[in-house]
Computed example of a mutant assay.
Amino acid sequence: MYSESDLASAVEAGALSPAAANALRNYVAERRAAPAVDEEHFKLLTGFNDIFVAIAAALILVAAARIGAYFGVLLIGAGPEERVVGGNMIGGGFAVAATSWMLAEYFTARRRMALPSILLMLGFTGGIAAGLSGIFAANIPWIEQQMHLATDLQKQQLAGGVAAAVGLLTATATWIHWKRFMVPITVAAGALALVGVGVSLVLAFVPQAKDWVNEMLLVAGVAMFFFAMRWDMSDLQRRTRRSDVAFWLHLAAAPLIAHPVFHMLGVFDGEVTGPVAAVVIALYVAFAFVALAVDRRALLVSSLIYVLWAMYALFQATGAVELAAALTALVIGSALLLLSAFWQPVRRIVVGLLGGLEERLPPTQIVTA
């Protein structure tokens, strides 16, 4: 299976002429009776060998984590529990990060294998974050003593500052990984690290902000959505790596938007009333409108659990207790399948309603250029 990125790379390398690549795109689009962008391609597997290599790489990373943790404790020496935990995190985290980078030099830089590249990028980022956290964890008692921290507020500010520092350094390491390997999911991982930095700083220096976490995450999600749209608008035909980057950014932004909104409505706090369920369903319809406009389905997937719960509560309230779960699955499943089947005509209507924005959104018609 060849992705749009593979076709673009083949054209750049001279292995395929632009005319031949466009002819292939047009042929596939006409067979499917839909623009290629509507398929929302992203590279996850280049073949079963991706799964084989990913399993082997995962085993190696687990081994590296355990061996690294063992030597990390030996290196840092015995002491309070914080030092032991910190030693485990330092040794295990940095061992996983180093191993992930070395494996990526072959499986990502040379072989360009999709699933192993994603796994190794996550291993590198997670390993760096764990190792940096371990450094602070092992030295927290010493830091508190040196800074003469006595109150809970001071300790909270220290924890927030540490989390922000770890997030910023992790984001920097992620940027270095992106410059070397250009794995599309890397940008989303770095963006999430920066979100963690912002939230940590606010929580550290504004104690009342602990009551505003959902609002902060919502603002971060909206900002990440617009960042994803910037990548999307630079490749409306979705034929380059930029489209893959936008896909992962949308996937990261969607839960940051959906979860705070529905959490503030109290969907899971107790019994869902009829009015609340109606609001949840109305919001899901609004999310569907946005998803159709930008031709990305991430928002629909991220908010699906909430609309399922709200619909389930509605069926229970009407007395269909025994069949509530089955009726909910039937209604929502049927609606999503119908939306998928008629995605293109419905999307043309939605984009048509947006007027002047049509030129800044992915095309709704088959492009035969």
Rank of each mutant, 00 (worst) to 15 (best):
Y2W: 14
Y2Q: 15
Y2V: 08
E4V: 00
S5D: 07
V11S: 04
V11D: 09
A15N: 14
R25I: 04
Y27L: 11
A29D: 12
R32T: 11
A33D: 12
A34T: 13
P35R: 01
D38M: 13
F42C: 06
T46S: 14
G47Q: 08
D50T: 03
F52Y: 07
F52N: 10
A58Y: 10
L59K: 01
I60M: 13
L61S: 05
V62E: 10
A63H: 05
A63E: 02
A65F: 14
R66A: 12
I67S: 06
Y70I: 09
F71R: 05
I76L: 15
E81Q: 15
E81W: 05
M89K: 08
G92K: 01
G93K: 09
A95T: 13
A97Q: 08
W101G: 03
M102Y: 14
M102G: 03
A104K: 11
E105V: 02
T108I: 13
T108C: 09
A109N: 13
A114W: 00
L115Q: 02
I118V: 14
M121H: 13
L122G: 10
F124M: 11
F124C: 08
I128E: 01
G134M: 08
F136Q: 01
N139H: 14
P141E: 06
I143W: 07
E144Q: 14
E144P: 04
Q146F: 10
M147R: 10
H148D: 12
A150Q: 06
Q154F: 07
Q157K: 10
A159L: 10
V166R: 07
G167P: 13
L168V: 14
T172P: 01
R180N: 01
M182Y: 05
V183R: 00
V183W: 02
I185H: 00
T186L: 14
T186W: 03
A193P: 09
V195E: 10
V199C: 02
A204I: 13
F205K: 12
N214F: 09
L217G: 07
L217Y: 14
L218R: 05
V222E: 01
A223W: 03
F227R: 00
R230P: 03
M233Q: 15
S234F: 02
Q237G: 06
R239I: 11
T240G: 08
T240W: 02
S243T: 03
P260A: 05
P260L: 05
M264N: 12
G266M: 03
V267K: 04
F268P: 05
G270N: 08
G270Q: 07
V276K: 13
V276C: 00
A277N: 00
A278N: 01
Y284L: 00
F287V: 11
F287I: 09
R296E: 05
R297K: 15
L299T: 01
L300I: 13
V301D: 02
V301Q: 00
S303F: 03
L304M: 12
L308R: 04
M311C: 14
M311T: 15
M311W: 01
F315Y: 14
Q316P: 03
G319C: 03
L323K: 06
A326R: 02
A326S: 11
T328S: 09
A329C: 10
L339W: 11
Q344A: 00
R347T: 07
V350C: 02
L353S: 08
L354W: 11
P362Y: 05
V367K: 08
V367M: 08
